[in-house]
């Protein structure tokens, strides 16, 4: 494996600086943000590297658990941050974290103990990157699904209440919105699956091949990861949509939009 020096990285970042200037000359007014995003990415990844090396060497399950909790909460927070209508109180964050942990954690433990079987099964080298990929993708899907659902509930209130008045229950009167929300949530993952291998070389596979792994082995890993992502996003979205649906109605099946606040 050919190692990259810090000098190589510094050279590349000069390229980003120059491109920022070029963008600015062409009227792009967010050059500072562009540079800041790059700097932030570098710092976050360096921090992750230091942290990971430490967790790898410490080799104790408690650190692994801590990493998982931090990643889960960060993903849950990101979901609520992207909502146009947020639940007041804790409901929003809880829905996010619950649906994420149910799916991502469940699938992660499943694949580690039954498929990859490292020793011990929580070995960070496998667990952390896998969890990261599962969380990243489920997070996007759940965020989109929730946003679509709450936004439509506010905008299409009359259509929901017309059905309630006819004696439909919560699930029935939200059916037409649920369909749209699932659709919105699943589109990015569908695009990703369709593009994989033809339009895009998935990041993980690229990394493994660059690091000198046999392409077929890298491909098998990637297929496994893709299938895991497909499962975790679908399951996570389904759980989130159902939890939200329940939350939106009170005990006498009235649409309760008071608990949503627009940002």
């Amino acid at each position: 494996m050919i190692l990259i020096s810090y000098w190589d990285l510094a050279t590349l970042s000069v390229l980003v600086m120059i491109l920022g200037v070029l963008l600015w000359l062409n009227g792009f007014d967010r050059v500072k943000q562009f540079w800041w995003a790059n700097l932030r990415m570098v710092l976050q990844l360096l921090l992750m590297g230091v942290w990971l090396s430490w967790v790898f060497y410490a080799d104790h399950w408690i650190w692994m658990a801590l990493v998982a909790v931090v990643m889960l909460s960060a993903a849950g927070y990101e979901i609520t941050k992207r909502q146009q209508y947020r639940f007041t109180r804790w409901s929003g964050l809880m829905i996010g974290i619950l649906s994420l942990s149910f799916t991502a954690l469940l699938l992660l433990v499943g694949v580690l103990t039954l498929v990859i079987q490292p020793d011990p099964w929580y070995q960070p080298q496998y667990a952390i990157p896998l969890l990261g990929m599962l969380l990243g993708n489920s997070m996007t899907a759940i965020g989109l699904g929730l946003d679509n659902m709450t936004r439509n509930s506010v905008q299409l209130k009359a259509k929901i209440e017309a059905q309630l008045a006819l004696g439909f229950n919560a699930r029935q009167s939200m059916e037409f919105i649920k369909q749209q929300s699932l659709h919105a949530a699943m589109i990015p993952i569908l695009n990703m699956l369709v593009a994989a291998g033809i339009i895009s070389l998935p990041g993980m596979m690229t990394g493994q091949i660059l690091a000198g792994a046999d392409p077929m082995e890298a491909v098998k890993y990637q297929i496994m990861v893709m299938l895991l992502i497909a499962s975790s996003t679908s399951l996570g979205t389904l759980i989130a949509v159902h939890l939200t649906l329940k939350r939106l109605f009170d005990e006498r099946l009235r649409l309760d939009l008071q608990q949503l606040s627009k940002r």
Binding site: L156, A158, K159, I160, E161, A162, Q163, L164, A165, L166, G167, F168, N169, F176, R252, L253, R254
Partner: peptide, 21 residues
């Protein structure tokens, strides 16, 4: 009685109608 069953028997017809399909 559950709310949906009650509303099926005691049904409200709004001045403004809404259609979901």
């Amino acid at each position: 009685i559950s709310a949906d069953k009650w509303r099926r028997k005691v049904m409200y017809f709004s001045a403004e109608t809404a259609w979901w399909s």
